[in-house]
Simulated scan of single mutants.
Amino acid sequence: MAVKIQVTFDAASPPTLGAFWAQVLGYVEDAPPAPFATWDECLDAMGVPLDQRDSAYAVVDPDGLGPRLWFQKVPEEKAGKNRVHLDVNAGAGLPAEERPSAVRARAAELETLGARTLYEREELGGFWVTMQDPEGNEFCVQ
């Protein structure tokens, strides 16, 4: 039996942060449950008020291989460094001398989506860029 996992993010704006990570990872919005064609139909049927419809958001790997990402609204802002973070692999399969330029190029793309570069690091034969998503969660591009 395959183990399914979900990675959960606390967020100020779940739909906005979820849309960012969907673009980063090539994910899509999680589909509403049958028989609903849209989330609004589903939430209407559940009686969820309009002002609460931004309280959660989920994205999934369209190939069904990666974990589901769940974004839940919380009132407090992020405080401190993440204890767990995602790594975005931009240099997989490239020769070592080509990885830094591929990683830097991917980091530049992610900045156009709202990410912020914190620093670059090269050690133990690896190269990565540490970044923050639009809500300040750290992640690495390697």
Rank of each mutant, 00 (worst) to 15 (best):
V141P: 08
W21V: 11
A12W: 00
L124N: 13
F36N: 00
P33C: 05
E77Q: 14
M131L: 14
N82L: 12
A102G: 07
D44E: 07
H85V: 06
N82T: 03
E29Y: 12
A34Y: 01
E120G: 04
Q132W: 05
D133V: 01
M46W: 02
G26F: 03
D133Q: 10
I5E: 10
V28E: 15
D51E: 14
S55G: 12
W39M: 05
L50I: 08
A108F: 10
N137I: 04
R53P: 06
D44W: 00
A37M: 01
D63C: 05
A37W: 01
V129L: 04
E123G: 08
P100G: 03
F36L: 02
A31E: 10
R121H: 12
W70E: 12
V103F: 00
P49L: 06
Q6S: 14
K81H: 15
M46Y: 01
G136V: 03
A96W: 00
E41A: 14
G47I: 03
A22G: 13
A79W: 14
E98V: 02
G80H: 02
G114H: 09
W21K: 11
P134N: 11
R99V: 11
P14L: 04
P32M: 07
K78E: 03
G126R: 10
A37H: 00
G66Q: 11
G91T: 04
Q132L: 13
V48R: 01
R99Y: 00
A19S: 08
W70D: 14
K4A: 13
G47C: 04
Q142K: 04
R68I: 05
L86G: 12
E77M: 08
P134C: 05
W39P: 12
D63M: 08
L94M: 06
L43H: 00
Q52V: 06
L124K: 09
R121A: 11
A34P: 13
F71W: 07
W21F: 10
A11M: 04
V7S: 06
P100I: 00
N137M: 08
P62A: 13
R116V: 12
T130N: 15
E109T: 09
D51P: 05
R121M: 14
Q23D: 14
G93T: 02
A31N: 08
G93V: 01
A22K: 02
L43A: 03
A102L: 07
W21P: 11
A115R: 11
